[in-house]
Design a protein around this nucleic acid. Structure first.
Length: 675
DNA sequence: CACCCTCGAGTTCC
DNA sequence: CTCGAGGGTG
């Protein structure tokens, strides 16, 4: 007797989901591809005739369906945190010491070791065994709902159990995994892109990200993405109490996992296998940037808590040493900064390091170039510090053929032709002309930049354009620009000109400390400007201050005091101040501006790191200052609190080392309110 | 005088 | 993020 379409469809779904699991997760197909395709075709046929029979776990959805306009934001059931990092084996041991102090002295720990995939975190929700939601990590609190795209990824079970004898899933299960683009497939993808004369993808991570966030799930379906699932975020029901057993449990449920997970009773034994990982890394079909070490007993996770409300103490990510590459140093070019300092910069044959192509490196100073004996034409080793800023580790002298040239300090400034000088006892060289056009350009650029007056619409290009047109020679000229000045300029339509003028208008009313910073007085940056503004209240008062007056201020020594007095003694600067005043730029502190709202944070020094959920860095600093606290730039023993947000970096590590308390934004607000 | 702490300045890629 | 230099402290 023939089954009803309803029964047949259910049967087909079950078979297809099982064979899909055999193929993509176990890599052990039980039927041939044509047989699979025949089953799929039959189900498609039934669904076409009876659309009401389409279920959320139907394998036909793997092909992707209609366009969806915007991704819905979804809130994660709990914070999807990140991990503190360790860069050396000793930092792993230090981590063990730190958590040891928080636990009873006789606790024996065991650990899991998992590869740290360089992909995208996703959060998958199963209700009654059915995949109901797939979301990106986002900021850890909310992410994008990319369910239709996630459904197209074959290694993600649409329904659990994946086969009739499989374990039953908890009533509700939220898991975390990593989406990645397998390397072999990535190589083929770029080959195809090249052949079609299309731009290549920079790295597998970008390709995976683009595919997962594609607005058309059918596009996503064409990409051979995979998802490794490695932890349980939230659950209604019984799950094993250790990380290791949860990994086995997830595997049994039908999730894909890297085969290389391991468990260790001894941290030293774990550390001992790190070199094996370094060796194994190039042979894997996915990119990893480190290893994740977790305390196996999940009941201890609660006890160990989180740092900065973000990073669980019970786990740490060991990051592989900065990736390095060799390339040729083609040339050394020179730049002049706003202070007149001459900096050498290396031009490299483009080289791919740590996920991006590097063509320029900063060479800090000439002493260092000489010490490392870096020559133009050399083959050099390039690394990226903290995975961001590239630098030249050193030359490979064996590669030399005799054509290399030693880097000479230029005798003349490449921009103004004036002599280059090196002040007594200084490492840096300077252009001797204080009005060197490049230096003036850099000063103006800085004047308008964020951090200084923050003039919207006035970036590097525009500054250059206005200088070339002869409209702006000094900082004050900016304030006399008119619509008639701007409209004749290239690429200046009415809208853009109006925006710039509005930006300039807004800059007339910046706080005094911003103006002081913007002037570029030697030794006066953001912090010192704030101190001086608070102390003197106006530029005119500051201009009349003597060296002795200035020396009374904490943080001001003879060098800075004399520098300030000398700056205001310069007739050109006096004229500049007069022009700024005439142009309506506020040169006094706001009436009662720095009013303290409270003193709940008095005497406390804070250091900010990472991105906070609602406050910007500036807002957070302002909030702290308004309540009597101080904000410093780096963590030391004198730091009272480190205010950490998303993507907190080395400062957080430092805080942990020094035992400085770490708080988050909510913690800060609490300190303020409870006082 | 030797140290540590802070600040300032310049810069990579996208 | 890094370096160099100024300022302050023991």
């Amino acid at each position: 007797m023939t089954p009803t379409p309803t029964d047949r469809a259910a049967d087909l779904r079950e078979q297809l989901n099982y064979h899909n699991y055999r193929y993509f997760v176990l890599n052990d197909p039980a039927i041939s591809d044509p047989e699979y395709d025949a089953l799929l075709a039959e189900l498609e046929q039934i669904e076409a005739e009876h659309p009401e029979l389409i279920t959320p776990d139907s394998p036909t959805l793997r092909a992707g369906s209609d366009l969806q306009p915007e991704f819905r934001k979804v809130r994660h059931p709990r914070l999807i945190g990140s991990l503190s990092k360790a860069f050396t084996e000793d930092e792993i041991r230090a981590w063990r010491e730190r958590i040891g102090k928080l636990l009873p002295p006789d606790v024996r720990l065991d650990y899991t070791l998992e590869p740290k995939l360089d992909g995208l975190s996703v959060v998958l929700t199963y209700e009654g065994g059915l995949l109901t939601l797939g979301a990106t990590r986002g900021d850890g609190i909310t992410g994008d709902d990319v369910t239709p795209n996630v459904r197209t990824i074959p290694s993600v079970p649409l329904r659990i159990p994946v086969h009739p004898d499989g374990p039953r899933p908890p009533a509700r299960l939220v898991v975390r995994g990593e989406v990645f683009y397998p390397l072999a497939a990535f190589a083929r993808l770029n080959e195809a892109q090249r052949a079609a004369d299309l731009p290549e993808f920079i790295n597998p991570r970008n390709a995976a990200s683009g595919a997962l966030k594609n607005k058309d799930p059918r596009e996503t379906a064409r990409r051979p993405l995979k998802v490794f699932v490695y932890s349980i975020v939230d659950v209604d029901g019984e799950v094993p109490p250790t990380q290791w057993d949860q990994l086995q449990f997830l595997k049994a449920l039908g999730f894909l996992e890297p085969a290389e997970m391991a468990r260790f009773d001894d941290l030293e034994a774990l550390i001992a296998v790190i070199p094996e990982w370094t060796a194994r890394r190039p042979r894997l079909d996915y990119e990893i940037d480190g290893l994740v070490i977790k305390v196996n007993d999940l009941r201890l996770w609660e006890e160990l808590g989180v740092v900065g409300n973000k990073n669980p103490r019970a786990a740490i990510a060991y990051k592989f040493p900065a990736e390095e590459a060799t390339t040729k140093l083609l040339d050394v070019k020179f730049s002049i900064g706003r202070t007149g300092v001459l900096k050498p910069g290396g031009v490299l044959e483009p080289v791919f390091v740590g996920g991006t192509t590097i063509t320029n490196v900063m060479l800090h100073n000439f002493d260092q170039i000489a010490e490392k004996d870096i020559r133009i034409g050399d083959t050099v080793i390039v690394k990226r510090a903290g995975d961001v800023i590239p630098y030249i580790e050193g030359p490979v002298p064996e590669e030399r053929d005799g054509s290399e040239r030693v880097v000479e300090v230029p005798a003349m400034c490449p921009f103004s032709g004036d002599p280059v000088i090196r002040p007594e006892g200084m490492v840096d060289y300077f252009c001797s002309n204080p009005y060197c056009p490049e230096r003036v350009f850099r000063s103006l650029e800085f004047f308008a930049s964020r951090g200084a007056l923050d003039i919207e619409g006035l970036g590097t290009q525009t500054v250059k354009q206005l200088m070339d047109a002869g409209l702006v020679r000094d900082e004050a000229d900016i304030f006399s620009l008119t619509l008639d000045d701007l409209l004749p300029l290239e690429r200046f339509a009415r809208k853009k000109a109006e925006n710039l003028l509005a930006g300039i208008e807004a800059a007339r009313h910046r706080p005094l400390d911003r103006v002081l910073t913007a002037l570029g007085i030697e030794g006066v940056g953001e912090i010192m400007a704030g101190t001086l503004a608070g102390h003197f209240g106006s530029i005119e008062t500051l201009a009349r201050a003597t060296v002795d007056d200035l020396l009374q201020i904490e943080g001001v020594g003879p060098t800075i005091a004399e520098g300030i007095v000398a700056w205001f003694a310069e007739p050109f600067h006096q004229q500049l101040i007069a022009k700024l005043k005439a142009a309506g730029v506020r040169l006094e502190a706001e009436q009662g501006a720095p009013v303290a709202v409270g003193d709940s944070l008095a005497g406390k020094t804070f250091v900010l790191t990472g991105t906070l959920p609602t406050l910007s860095r500036e807002e957070a600093a302002a909030l702290i200052k308004a309540h009597g606290g101080k904000v410093a730039g780096s963590v030391s023993k004198k730091t009272d609190y480190v205010l950490a947000g998303e993507n907190a970096g080395s400062k957080l590590t430092k805080a942990e080392e020094l035992g400085v308390p770490v708080i988050d934004e909510a913690g800060l607000r609490q300190m303020i309110e409870s006082a």
